[in-house]
Amino acid sequence: MTVAAWHSVLRFLGQEAKHLDDKDWDAWLALYAPDVDYWVPAWDSDGTLVTDPTKHVSLIYYKNRGGLEDRVFRIRTGRSASSTPLARTSHQFQLIDLSEPDDVVLARTNWVVHTVTEHAVRSYFGTAHYTLKPHNDSWLIHAKKTIVLNDRIDQVLDVFHI
């Protein structure tokens, strides 16, 4: 892994955080490949995540970008329970691992998101695992698995909360 590759991935993932905080939904969606697998698994029991999003309950699961596009459509309508009113957010992440098997880059981050809605501040935190492929002079996200480590989640989570 080169320093240049590390920096390139770090900058790319920073753009994802920026687009979510800025609510720049079109730019955020453009980071994802059409066939992206976007998964936020639930905990089966304390310390054990579910292993198959097609057979177990997940916090969020979309098998392609169409699901994310639908999610953004609902956010924009202002009629989504999880996004009314729309939270202000601050996404922070740390790139902690990067590897390059075959023609993809696997990245792992630790993250925390602070949200403010109706004078209530909430924080969510966890890890995220990305599968990235080169695209033009940057990257596209082909898979993202986000693990939420909070014990309690007292609202409906949406893509911008994590």
Rank of each mutant, 00 (worst) to 15 (best):
G78M: 03
V113Q: 04
V116L: 10
R79C: 13
L140G: 04
I162F: 05
A120Q: 14
F160N: 04
T146E: 08
R88F: 07
D151Q: 11
K55G: 03
A27F: 01
V57L: 13
H91W: 05
F93T: 05
W111E: 01
N136C: 07
I162Y: 02
I96M: 11
E118N: 10
L95F: 03
W43K: 09
L106G: 02
D37Q: 14
T89R: 00
D22W: 09
N150F: 07
D21Q: 06
I60F: 04
W28I: 02
T77P: 06
T146P: 01
G78T: 03
S138N: 13
A4I: 09
L86Q: 12
L68A: 05
D102E: 15
A81G: 08
T89W: 04
D26Y: 06
R79G: 13
L140W: 04
W43A: 06
V104Y: 06
T54S: 09
I96P: 05
G14L: 07
A87T: 05
R108P: 01
R76D: 12
W39Q: 00
E100Q: 10
Y124H: 08
V116W: 09
T51W: 08
L157E: 01
S83E: 12
S58E: 09
N150I: 06
P34F: 07
L31T: 04
D22L: 10
W25I: 04
I162W: 00
L31W: 01
D154K: 05
M1N: 10
K145P: 03
E69L: 01
Y62H: 14
P101D: 10
H119D: 15
K55W: 08
A143E: 14
D137W: 08
H91D: 07
T89Q: 02
T117L: 03
V156I: 12
A42K: 04
T115V: 09
R108H: 14
F125C: 12
T77F: 08
D24Q: 12
D46H: 10
D137F: 05
K18P: 04
L49T: 09
S80H: 12
R71Q: 11
T146W: 00
D26H: 07
Y32F: 07
S45I: 10
T48S: 13
R11A: 11
G67S: 08
H7G: 06
F125I: 04
Y38F: 13
D46L: 08
S123A: 07
T51N: 14
A33R: 03
S83H: 12
K133L: 10
W111F: 11
T109M: 01
V121F: 09
R76L: 11
P53R: 02
N150Q: 10
H142G: 06
G47P: 08
D44C: 07
V9L: 02
K133E: 15
H129L: 08
T109H: 02
Y32E: 02
S138M: 02
L20A: 07
E69V: 02
W43R: 10
L49I: 05
R122D: 14
L20H: 03
V9S: 00
T48N: 14
H135N: 13
Y124I: 05
D158S: 15
K55P: 02
H19Y: 15
L95C: 09
A33M: 11
V3A: 11
V104L: 09
S80V: 05
R71G: 00
P34Y: 10
D102Q: 14
P101K: 03
D70S: 05
